[in-house]
Design a protein around this nucleic acid. Structure first.
Lengths: 341, 341
DNA sequence: TTGAAAGCGGTACCAA
DNA sequence: TTGGTACCGCTTTCAA
């Protein structure tokens, strides 16, 4: 509908060549103040907007970034998106968003699609965990949250190990010795590091690891719900539980309610990541807070920086690790008892 | 990085002209089976992907859709996005997402940006409420949720009036006469219709409208929280409350908890839109369920249909209204009393 | 059935 | 300081 106006129209109207119009548009070359004014006036009058596709064809730059996430429904991902979009738009970049459903096939589809070609760089929460896949991407990519060692890419992650370690330590310091973990798969650094943090804390405080207290599954609410029920039905149930992500934590909270138990008195709970229910229940559930929005910010900044650097390939990958914070509320009962270490 | 391979490379490798390659690529023209095979083989070997920008320049089609929403953080909007993306990708369209922060300026910025030029059509949850703004958009647009009469655009909405009416009626049928509403601004059809539905139900059952029971504000949680507190502190507090959206409903639930009241027994509650807390509390809060994902689906389908129709401008705008459903749980106390009508 | 070439809307080099 | 023009990668007439 309605044919768009082009640089030629501007040139004609201003009585100059298209080259001149291009010059004032990009503010590069020396153009007489008079012509500049004249052109700018016409641009305004005609409401001229350059055709970015034509520009891209010759400049090989699209001024577009992509953010690729598993799903849009998780607040963590939307926070990352928001962080990226905010930085990008400030720097004159548009952002397109793509979701992979955390599925390797769909992610691969993105990287083979034209969409990938149409962006200058990518912020990615990846579904693959083989370095080779990432190595084959010939565009700047910043990995967020999940970092793949050997991918050769930059990344922004949080200190998963420390978060899990501190959570577990906090429980131990409150006298707990029977501490369960409900976690996701050990596929990426997030699952692996959180599990490792939990284990290390037990080890450091000389607490035996009890396999029954370790519930591995997916990262979704139902896993948290079912696991919590199973744990509490054990002949010797744990006194405390570490829920390794936001969805799992919500599941555990629902299970605790359905079991007619009281958080903090009947069973202690610490979650990884803030979530609506942890915030709502009374007492509030202690959680590891991680800088989600900031992760998006940093990822975009790293990406833009890579873009500025251009072709200089002799660059080592950078991994930025952001700290986490344990928000202590009333969900952990102090069992007394001595604390070693 | 790594110069992409072009149609010329394919042509050269296959010993044919670029025109021929173009033909087999688009499967349009008559090409001999032999050449077709040959070209397809080379395309595969070289892993050739056409440069969509070059294609777009000549076809004037980008195969891209935009979804413009206020924010990504609201599950309602992400559901709409998901619906649109699903349909679009099935039809070979990519989708870019843009957020306006529900701000007229930012929305206008999108429509002046190059991004708008780069998409074939737009699914929009608009921030403007003046028809003129929408009339000036020379691209197919489908309005979702908020419909602007006189915009001349297609739209997909839900039956806000009925949802509010049924909610209020449900309360009335359970013997309530002192029914409050906590609502958002009366700027768009959503706020207006829900308020109207509430009023109409009162009127139909000959219940006096009490201004004190009507709390107008924004659509956010805090408005729900504060308003609920104010309502319950009235010398003659309402026996039931209708919370006109998901965020407001969450706020009321928190307020009820902080007031140490019991949902269903101390005060009855019906919310518009499902939400995490309504689902969590005991008893669950009755809510109006609306087909969010389906709204995205329908919007995308309408848009794609418009795209197929092309330039035929002599088309009347279509507004599709989807029904809503009242999910009844235990949050409404039966006060007995007779029901007229 | 196939190829040559114009043109989409810009940029940037080379001349003037 | 300005203009002419080749070119970016592709589609699409027009001829062969």
């Amino acid at each position: 509908m309605a044919s768009e106006i082009t640089i030629k129209d501007v040139a004609k109207q201003a009585n100059v060549s298209v080259a001149t119009v291009s010059r004032v548009l990009n503010g590069l070359d020396r153009v007489s103040e008079k012509t500049r004014k004249k052109v700018q006036k016409v641009v305004k009058e005609l409401n001229y907007v350059p055709n970015t596709m034509a520009v891209s064809m010759v400049t090989k730059q699209t001024q577009m970034l992509a953010v690729v996430v598993p799903v849009f429904e998780n607040p963590f991902y939307t926070a990352v998106i928001k962080g990226t979009v905010d930085v990008a738009s400030q720097e004159g970049y548009h952002t397109v968003v793509f979701s992979t459903n955390d599925n390797e096939k769909e992610e691969a589809a993105f990287f083979m699609s034209s969409l990938k070609r149409n962006v200058d760089g990518i912020v990615l929460i990846g579904a693959h965990n083989n370095p080779e896949f990432y190595q084959s991407i010939n565009k700047p990519v910043i990995l967020v949250d999940r970092y793949i060692e050997g991918s050769g890419l930059d990344g922004v992650v949080i200190d998963n190990f420390r978060g899990a370690y501190e959570s577990t330590k906090y429980l131990i310091e409150n006298g707990h010795r029977q501490i369960a973990i409900i976690s996701g798969p050990q596929t990426f650094n997030d699952g692996i590091e959180r599990y490792r943090g939990y284990q290390q804390a037990l080890k450091d405080y000389e607490i035996d690891f009890i396999p029954e207290y370790s519930k591995q599954g997916d990262w979704f609410e139902d896993h948290g719900y079912q696991s919590m029920k199973e744990l509490m039905n054990l002949s010797n149930p744990p006194t405390a539980v570490f829920a390794a992500n936001n969805m799992i934590c919500q599941g555990t909270i629902k299970a605790i309610r359905d079991l007619n138990l009281q958080i903090g008195s009947d069973v202690s709970l610490v979650g990884f990541d803030e979530n609506t229910l942890a915030d709502f229940v009374n007492p509030r559930v202690s959680v590891i807070k991680r800088p989600t929005y900031e992760m998006g910010i940093h990822a975009a900044e790293m990406l833009l920086q890579r873009l500025k650097q251009g072709e200089k390939k002799d660059l080592v990958p950078r991994k930025l690790t952001l700290g986490v914070e344990l928000l202590k509320y009333g969900s952990v009962k102090n069992l007394g008892g001595e604390i070693n270490a």
